[in-house]
Design a protein around this nucleic acid. Sequence first.
DNA 1: ATGAAAGCGCTAACAG
DNA 2: CTGTTAGCGCTTTCAT
Lengths: 346, 346
Amino acid sequence: MVRLVDIARQAGVSVMTVSRVLRDAPDISAATKLRVRTIAQQMGYVPDVMAQGLRTRASRLLGVLLPNVTDPAASRLLLALEERTHELGFDLLLAQSLHQADREELCLRRFLARRVEGLFIAPVYRLTPFAPVYADLRRRGTRVVVLGPRPPFCEDFVGVEGDDVAGSSFATRHLLELGHRRIACLAGPPQSPVAQAQLEGYRRALREQNLEPDDRLVFKAGVTFEDGARAASQMLAENAGATAVQACSDAVATGAAAALLAHGLRIPTDISLVGYGNLPGTEHHRVPLTTVSQPKYRLGTAAIEVMLRLLRTEPAETRRLPAELVVRSSTGPPQRQIQLWTQGNA
Amino acid sequence: MVRLVDIARQAGVSVMTVSRVLRDAPDISAATKLRVRTIAQQMGYVPDVMAQGLRTRASRLLGVLLPNVTDPAASRLLLALEERTHELGFDLLLAQSLHQADREELCLRRFLARRVEGLFIAPVYRLTPFAPVYADLRRRGTRVVVLGPRPPFCEDFVGVEGDDVAGSSFATRHLLELGHRRIACLAGPPQSPVAQAQLEGYRRALREQNLEPDDRLVFKAGVTFEDGARAASQMLAENAGATAVQACSDAVATGAAAALLAHGLRIPTDISLVGYGNLPGTEHHRVPLTTVSQPKYRLGTAAIEVMLRLLRTEPAETRRLPAELVVRSSTGPPQRQIQLWTQGNA
DNA sequence: ATGAAAGCGCTAACAG
DNA sequence: CTGTTAGCGCTTTCAT
């Protein structure tokens, strides 16, 4: 391992001179600069960032904690985060909580021990209103940007998030505009902040049209394909009379589509379907899915921007980014008969 | 920031004692152990891993360099890597090359400056047989596990990879067994090692059945949906008389499917189609895709196992993991007439 | 324009 | 069982 001293000896100068040259510090003659640089190059010198950091008290390290890098939304965010982070001269530590609060805590403590200068965290949802690690982060004044909705225990941190109530209401409004009046909602887990926002958006859009949300049209669906299939089957079994279905995720929507088609319904002729998330590939599904897209990459760049302000100790605010409706072919106007029927019923 | 000295003062012992206690070193009385621990806890002590590392010359840092974390295969691998890495007590540095050789080089140099103890690299393919960074890695004796096929400039490193020639030949054999004789191949970029392996597997399976590979059945397809659509259209335009198509990726296969269906062909009734990669969601596509699956998660755990051997300076060998055919409904026996026609032609 | 001394927070090596 | 000394590789500070 080549150190500064080695170069210094070789070049016949002091360690300080070498240090200065290699950091492009001022007050060095062009001659020594060149000589030292050449020798350093020849000897294959690589600075020791840890030693530098110990002295300068700067780690140039950022950490990102995600539930699971496999989630397409998370990975797009990570793409952006990594890209910008490196441009800014930071290295990026990655950890996954795997949706386990204790693993999250462990990972965060390790990040702290690495003296990270900032942290991007997509928090594991806890039922408790407090989480000791977050208290520690606060106490230590660690810069934190929360990715996604902020549960109670970290409400005071800044963050970046998609606007899920607006996103969800886009979906509902789209169906409304097509003429649907009975729109079923396959809702996510009630504890999930995203699911709550989606339900809120759905109801809000309904009320805008003076339609009173009907709880018999809201079905618990979870998050998976199977959850979606189950929920759709149940909806059919209950004879809810919906002409359109809005799901809390594309996976759920896909499962619902499968169940609906299996029951002999045509999409969108007999029933319309909207997903959520714009999962890659849904445009090639059996029925290309109309869905809501959150700007995943933009969320990443926004997170970096916020972090940058934090690092400069400038005031930073939580950013809420707008969602976008992606219309494909799983939605269309309701069938005339059913439409008449619902109108007669309304 | 609380340091060992602070605790030492508070507890009325030497720094060394505190250090020993906190590292669970032997030869410390239970009493002091307890006392020091309590105080450390109270003061909110967090060890400085950088300082520890500087002294012990161990960074407990592993680095992973991927082209793009957004690729589902890469992200599954990363999932496994992160999981195991943390269990082993290492932190994980993440970087993306974005398929750019110079960015790859930069990232690797930064990893070296961090004194990583090991590196997982999915190399950017270069046309040149040498790459200076890799020479440096060699010279410095950095532990490296190459992810995926190893281009010439890093052939001497150990790695883990999927068996793409076997995987590809599984696909071909499957079509052969269904009775297909004229199987088109939508091939990937000729420089890509994976694409080469796939072509090799395709040809090998054909020859096993004493069928001479026909170059007029091989079409350049690239890697995207659009590439696939283009290639399939070209195949149709050239009247190649294929009863089945085997694509170099699921994206290409999906594009091909779209083109084929647009031309009025039914899949698999009129023509069979096999993809490659088992992209998440392909089971819900317009035509659920028969495809070849590489054990992405297993590749990650295998990479860790190899790294572990490297870290222990035990001999380590490159691991090649078997692929698996996933039969869904894009493949079936060829139509009788066409079959007769091809037989008459063969 | 260059160098000497000191120390970042920690631990290995040795002493008692 | 506990403490002292030295030093990891680097940079800050102050001197020349």
